[in-house]
Design a protein around this nucleic acid. Structure first.
Length: 290
DNA sequence: ATCCAGGATCTCC
DNA sequence: GGAGATCATGGA
């Protein structure tokens, strides 16, 4: 990977395994807007940034973005330091199904998102479609978050949300999740969800800790673990993943999530989360099992 | 209109 | 302890 810094643009070349469309639209994040193919705006870490890949896919343009900002934020955020070639090779080796999914969605990278934003995003995600999740997050950001530029707002911190009631959240269209958000805010505000502490915990106890939050179950906890805490061995199993796993690996037979989960972890181990994301995107675009 | 959405919890038995 | 109803909301 090579980076050039010109006039507040960062141009990335000589990279592999990066397709901005796949990365943003594969269901791991919500604060993006498509401008055109391979061209998006994205909000995170207090920044609004445009990310544009040229048609050939050989150059990625981050704008506006300084060298310092790129190296401090986006380099790790988009997981540029990980070797996806090795992961994909290892996963595709003895699994033709997964090899197809990787062939289809090989430009995915698992982003390293901000813990708090990610936690609330996936609490909101339950029983909602991705467009609706995006809208609700935007509503909350606009109502309670700090303005960045134009109509773009940061997602509010727990401090900014601590006095917000369930009723006040309803106009943001959070629905029955209001009480869940309030509980997460309280736990975060009182210091119980400090990522400096969380990051030192082993994955199992960390998952238990997250599931102490009202409204956080196995699946939401797994999403937070993989998308913001770097735990790639988890296997978030939602309706889509359950369907596709049954379809591909269980002769289309009704199978308990627990069984699917241990099957995936036995089969893919530390890379289970990557496998999940390739399969999820593949199955959702192709509507497998529906 | 009825069903479902990147689920979790409560309520019965 | 496990299936079934329930929770807001909007799109198909």
């Amino acid at each position: 990977m090579k980076a050039e810094y010109i006039n507040n643009h960062v141009f990335i070349t000589d990279y592999d395994s990066f397709d901005i469309g796949d990365i943003l639209e594969c269901g791991q994040c919500f604060r993006f807007e498509k401008i055109e193919d391979k061209h998006y705006t994205y909000i995170s870490c207090g920044k609004v940034i445009e990310i544009k890949q040229d048609v050939s896919g050989k150059v990625i343009d981050f704008y506006p973005c300084t060298k310092e900002e790129f190296e401090k934020i986006w380099l790790d955020y988009f997981d540029f330091n990980r070797n996806y070639k090795d992961i994909k090779e290892s996963l595709a080796k003895s699994d033709t199904i997964l090899a197809d999914a990787i062939d289809f969605a090989g430009g995915i990278r698992i982003m390293n998102q901000e813990f708090w934003d990610c936690l609330i995003a996936f609490i909101i995600s339950q029983n909602k479609t991705i467009p609706m999740i995006k809208a609700v997050i935007k509503n909350i950001a606009k109502a309670y978050g700090t303005n960045i530029v134009g109509e773009n707002y940061k997602f509010p911190t727990a401090e900014q949300l601590i006095h917000v009631t369930q009723e006040e959240l309803m106009p943001c269209k959070v629905g029955f999740r209001a009480k869940y958000i309030v509980d997460a805010v309280n736990k975060r505000f009182s210091g119980g969800l400090d990522e400096k502490v969380l990051s030192k915990m082993d994955t199992e106890s960390l998952k238990k800790k997250l599931m102490e939050i009202y409204g956080v179950g196995v699946k939401v906890a797994d999403c937070v673990l993989i998308f913001s805490l770097g735990r790639h061995e988890v296997f978030p199993t939602d309706v889509w993943v359950k369907r596709l796993m049954q379809y591909f690996y269980f002769e289309n037979k009704e199978t308990p999530i627990k069984e699917i989960y241990s099957f995936a972890q036995d089969k893919w181990g530390e890379y289970a989360g990557f496998a999940q994301q390739y399969l999820f995107h593949y199955a959702r675009v192709k509507r497998i099992g529906v």
